[in-house]
């Protein structure tokens, strides 16, 4: 009996030896290279399909839903800091802030009184001109879960998803102006592309005279490039650019950027125009998702 046990013990030990130690000493390199090549081919096809055909929407939405908890955990320290900050404020500073907010509220409600009258007048005038009535838009407040860790991408992750009615292409604003649009929706979170991303373009018009243009993202935060503005166009430093509503993606009239540089070179067909986004793209923690009348159901 003890002999058999001993043999078992011996073969067990041999197995452990050949299983772990020997294997880690002599690794089959050629088979690994084959496997790696196989993976690289599969991944190259994956990249091609995702880039060229953009047909992985459903899969990505499921994967994004699975990734949401990681964003939530990564955001936790910031959230705790904020909570701690809110709960350890002195009474004095709270009172002060309360007072400031009350004053601000008074000013805003004063302004909105005038808005009501103006809106009614605007509706009457539009009716006289036989143009379509501007529909009121509703908003959804969303909170930032994270920003894209890749500096090449200007993307935000928001804590509202398909469950809350967020849809693809939905405009995103903060209290100062347009921020971007939703490019990917998962169940409980969504991903927004900012105006300044190198792949984003916004149809705008100059608020002063209605000249239309396209504001392209530069890949740098705080800089938009207005391309193909002819050298004779009436555009000046300080002009406010608002959404033109062309293209049907963004509702008309939201502030986008302020022109901060105009260079007219007589040798060039187009002026070099840059603008600074009005919204605080890297500071806003709470953002608004706009629902317009033409939203796809």
């Amino acid at each position: 009996m003890s002999y058999i046990k001993c043999v078992f013990h011996y073969t067990g030990a041999k197995q452990v030896l050949s299983g772990a130690n020997i294997k880690s000493l002599f690794f089959k390199e050629s088979s690994v290279v084959l496997h790696a090549l196989l993976i690289v081919v599969v991944v190259a096809i994956l990249i091609g399909v995702d880039l060229r055909y953009n047909s992985l929407g459903g899969v990505r939405s499921v994967l994004d839903t699975m990734a949401t908890p990681i964003y939530w955990i990564a955001d936790l320290p910031g959230r705790i800091m904020e909570w701690g900050d809110e709960h350890t404020r002195s009474r004095g500073s709270l009172l002060q802030e309360n007072e400031k907010l009350r004053r601000e509220n008074l000013v805003l409600s004063g302004r909105s009184q005038r808005m009501a009258a103006l809106r009614a007048e605007n509706a009457r005038l539009r009716a006289l001109l036989n143009s379509a009535a501007l529909l009121r838009s509703d908003v959804l407040v969303a909170e930032l879960l994270g920003v894209s860790p890749d500096p090449a991408l200007h993307q935000l992750v928001l804590n509202k998803g398909a469950r809350q009615g967020v849809f693809l292409g939905q405009p995103l604003i903060d209290n100062d102006g347009l921020m971007g649009q939703i490019v990917r929706v998962s169940e409980f979170s969504s991903r927004a592309l900012l105006l300044t991303d190198a792949t984003h373009s916004t149809p705008v018009q100059i608020n002063r005279n209605g000249v239309r243009a396209i504001a392209e993202g530069s890949g740098r935060l705080g800089l938009l490039e207005i391309r193909h503005v002819s050298a004779t166009t009436d555009i000046e430093v300080g002009d406010l650019l608002v959404t033109s509503g062309l293209g049907g993606r963004f509702p008309i009239g939201y502030p986008v950027a302020i022109v901060n540089q105009v260079e007219r070179d007589p040798g060039q067909a187009f002026a070099t125009v840059t603008a600074q986004p009005s919204s605080s793209l890297d500071r806003s923690r709470h953002v608004l998702l706009v629902f317009t009348a033409e939203q796809p159901e």
Binding site: A20, K23, S24, F27, V32, H35, A36, I39, V40, V43, A44, L46, I47, D50, L51, L56, V59, R60, L63, D64, M66, A67, I70, Y71, S148, P149, D150, L153, Q155, V157, R184, R191
Partner: peptide, 30 residues
């Protein structure tokens, strides 16, 4: 642990990172 963690681990982890970073599926996998 070269006998445990290898190219397949790398590829799977990369897909996960692609999803988190919001880049093209396969960039980090590659």
């Amino acid at each position: 642990l070269p006998h445990r963690v290898g190219v397949y681990t790398g590829a799977l982890l990369g897909i996960g990172l692609d999803v988190l970073e919001g880049v093209v599926l396969g960039q980090n996998a590659l």
